[in-house]
Amino acid sequence: RNRTTFTSYQLEELEKVFQKTHYPDVYAREQLAMRTDLTEARVQVWFQNRRAKWRK
């Protein structure tokens, strides 16, 4: 699989949710996936990576 390149809009939306919660539930991830036109799996992985970056 190729690396996903996120648009500025997608990143904005993802970051907005990340500010509210670092662990969005499956419903929140589904909503976000629909809004950003990404798969729920991509959203889930983005949050995993974002949490790792945040911990550093």
Rank of each mutant, 00 (worst) to 15 (best):
33 A>R: 09
42 R>E: 12
7 T>G: 05
43 V>C: 10
1 R>T: 15
27 Y>H: 15
48 Q>G: 10
15 E>F: 02
46 W>Y: 03
49 N>V: 08
6 F>G: 03
34 M>P: 00
41 A>C: 06
13 E>I: 02
6 F>D: 04
17 V>C: 14
6 F>P: 04
25 D>N: 04
8 S>Q: 15
4 T>A: 06
20 K>Y: 04
6 F>M: 13
50 R>F: 00
34 M>E: 12
53 K>R: 11
20 K>M: 12
31 Q>D: 06
44 Q>F: 12
35 R>M: 04
40 E>I: 06
27 Y>R: 13
3 R>C: 15
55 R>S: 12
50 R>H: 04
14 L>F: 07
22 H>V: 06
7 T>M: 09
50 R>E: 10
51 R>Q: 09
47 F>S: 02
3 R>P: 13
15 E>W: 04
24 P>R: 00
55 R>H: 12
8 S>R: 13
22 H>M: 15
30 E>F: 07
28 A>M: 12
28 A>G: 04
39 T>S: 07
25 D>F: 00
38 L>D: 00
49 N>W: 06
44 Q>G: 13
47 F>D: 01
24 P>C: 00
15 E>C: 02
16 K>V: 04
13 E>Y: 05
39 T>E: 08
29 R>E: 02
3 R>G: 13
27 Y>P: 13
33 A>G: 10
6 F>C: 06
25 D>H: 03
16 K>W: 05
56 K>W: 10
49 N>Y: 09
39 T>Y: 01
2 N>D: 11
25 D>P: 04
40 E>F: 08
26 V>R: 10
41 A>L: 11
31 Q>P: 01
11 L>N: 08
1 R>D: 15
35 R>F: 00
7 T>K: 08
47 F>Q: 00
23 Y>S: 07
48 Q>V: 10
38 L>Y: 00
8 S>H: 07
50 R>P: 00
2 N>R: 05
27 Y>E: 14
21 T>C: 11
5 T>W: 09
46 W>P: 00
37 D>M: 10
29 R>F: 07
27 Y>M: 07
2 N>I: 12
29 R>K: 07
24 P>W: 00
30 E>S: 10
34 M>Q: 13
36 T>V: 10
24 P>L: 04
29 R>W: 02
34 M>T: 10
